[in-house]
């Protein structure tokens, strides 16, 4: 797979605080890559470093396998924190400035304005826009000229539910076109819904790095219940893969050494003469995983 962005031991300190601490990671072409972490975990700092807004104290990074320059930045569309435009200029004029900087023609401007639902307001001044519209204009500007990669930093922050839905819909549509997306967020739900890969960040370090489906696929435990709980527990303890059994109200929580499917348990118990009254696979949610990872750290 083509590496799009690679970071090598990037560090940035603000006084004694390690905003980013020896961070290394690779993002590949075609991924929808989520950077997940609580506020202050170093997400924005990391993105600011790879966009040359902030100088890293140590480490290096490469875009498209090259040393970063202003030319590489022209192939990246970014929305970092707040939408930044001239309030007294129209949407159209603001995008013309972006097009000039990126060496693009103005032909794409109507397309991205339509895509973000701002075409009717193209001649309105930026300051007359609602926050949701401002954010959509930022996305429109990032989409100008078919960038190779889209960087979005908390793109739904501060938006109302409708605005959030609109932005997510745009992101998913763009992702569908095969454009690589890097999305920083503190919202698990957002990462879970949009991303294919995720890196969990805390205190400037990566705690976990992998596919979202991989994280989600792992069954955490199986809940089971029967009329005779005591017998059920005794029988289950004889099951070879069983790691531990915990009692929770009228249910037993079964943890396994390897991946075990509920139907296997059902079959096993039936063969032992026990009929279950409740059987449920409890998938480990990303949220739980996330909180576990954070808990391990502190």
């Amino acid at each position: 797979m083509d590496t799009l962005l690679s970071l090598h031991e990037i560090s940035k300190n603000y006084g004694k605080i390690h905003a980013v601490d020896k961070l290394s990671m690779n993002i590949h072409k075609g991924q929808v890559f989520g950077i997940l972490g609580p506020n202050g975990s170093g997400k924005t700092t990391t993105l600011s470093i790879v966009l040359d807004l902030i100088k890293a104290d140590h480490g290096s990074f490469q875009w498209f396998g090259n040393v970063p320059s202003k030319e590489t930045r022209k192939r990246i569309g970014s929305v970092i924190e707040s939408p930044n435009f001239f309030p007294y200029l129209s949407a159209q004029k603001n995008l013309e400035i972006v097009a000039e900087i990126k060496d693009l023609s103005y032909d794409d401007i109507p397309t991205v304005l339509k895509m973000t639902g701002l075409y009717d307001r193209m001649n309105s001044k930026f300051r007359t826009f609602s926050f949701g519209m401002k954010q959509r204009l930022a996305v429109a500007s990032a989409l100008l000229g078919d960038p190779d990669v889209l960087i979005l930093d908390e793109p739904t922050n501060g938006l109302d539910p409708q605005g959030i839905a609109q932005i997510r819909e745009i992101i998913l549509r763009v992702a569908g076109e095969g454009i690589t997306i890097i999305l920083a967020s503190h919202l698990l739900d957002e990462v879970q819904k949009i991303c294919s890969h995720v890196a969990v960040l805390n205190k400037g370090k990566i705690l976990f790095d992998g596919e979202v489906s991989e994280v989600l696929a792992e069954a955490d435990c199986i809940e089971v219940s029967a009329d005779n709980l005591e017998l059920l527990g005794k029988v289950m303890s004889e099951y070879p893969q069983c790691k531990s059994i915990a009692k929770s109200n009228d249910k037993l929580l079964l943890y396994f050494k390897t991946l075990v499917k509920p139907q296997e348990i059902n079959q096993f118990l039936f063969s032992k003469g026990i009929t279950v009254s409740h059987l449920m696979e409890r998938k480990r949610s990303l949220e739980k995983h996330f909180l576990e990872l954070l808990a391990q750290e502190s």
Partner: peptide, 21 residues
């Protein structure tokens, strides 16, 4: 100073200008 107030200086760098530009 407008460039700093509106943070367009950041945006211009992100979009592909250098600080020297």
């Amino acid at each position: 100073t407008n460039e700093f107030t509106y943070k367009t200086i950041r945006q211009n760098v992100i979009n592909g200008m250098s600080k020297v530009d």
